[in-house]
């Protein structure tokens, strides 16, 4: 078995807090949300399992060794698997269910064939086309289809969620700090000034 400390990227002499921190960081990195509809989801899941096992091994060993372990559970339920299944079939025909399954299992060619053969071009069809393209990494086409799906059926939460996912609304890489700041956002300078003002206020209260 591989060294659990190496898996977490900490030295064996690290304190319990350091181990916990490293574990949490990695668990965040491989969180199922980051691999939703991604062909690499299986690999991420494996990695998550490895991390969980390593963390369990370390905490168990430290507990039995008399050192304070304390933390248990937490992210261990992270990969329930549900994240990769779609939330129920809202559509009528059984072939949509088939297409969903094909997309989820990564059989994209088959899914494309089925979609091409579909007579209807309704919201669900557009959504599935979008999912198919998203899985391929074709984000521009995927967004067009998701937009069309949302336009046809604005009440559907699944479609809206897909659209916001592909639009990178919560992408952590938007602001690099070196490019021009996005309009209306608070840049580091604003933040710094705010901090300074807050600091002054805190000092004044004493």
């Amino acid at each position: 078995m591989t060294d659990p400390y190496k898996v977490l990227g900490v030295s064996p002499s690290a304190t319990d807090d350091e181990v916990k921190k490293a574990y949490r960081e990695l668990a965040k990195k491989y969180h199922p949300d980051n691999y939703a509809d991604n062909p690499l989801a299986d690999l991420a899941q494996e990695k998550m399992k490895e991390i969980n096992e390593a963390y369990d091994t370390i905490t168990r060993a430290r507990k039995s060794g008399g050192s304070a372990g304390g933390y248990s559970g937490g992210y261990s339920q992270g990969y329930g698997g549900s994240a990769y299944q779609s939330s129920g079939y809202q559509s009528s025909g059984t072939s949509y269910a088939q297409i969903r399954q094909a997309i989820n299992s990564g059989n994209l060619q088959y899914a494309e064939q089925l979609l091409d053969a579909c007579p209807a071009r309704d919201a669900e069809w557009n959504f599935l086309m979008g999912s198919l393209y998203y899985r391929k990494g074709w984000l521009d086409d995927a967004r067009s289809f998701f937009q069309r799906a949302v336009g046809m059926d604005p009440t559907n939460g699944e479609y809206r969620q897909a659209l916001s996912m592909v639009s990178g609304a919560n992408s952590p890489y938007r602001q690099t700090g070196y490019g021009p700041p996005a309009q209306g956002s608070c840049d580091m300078c604003d933040m710094c000034t705010t901090m300074m003002c807050m600091n002054m206020l805190c000092g004044g209260c004493r």
Binding site: K29, Y30, N34, Y35, N38, L40, L43, A44, K47, G137, L139, D140, R143, V166, S167, G168, S171, P172, Y173, R174
Partner: peptide, 17 residues
Amino acid sequence: RETLMGSVSLAVAAFNL
């Protein structure tokens, strides 16, 4: 920008593995 940043997210997800 959205398209490109979406690809960045996917690239980072792959890189982490």
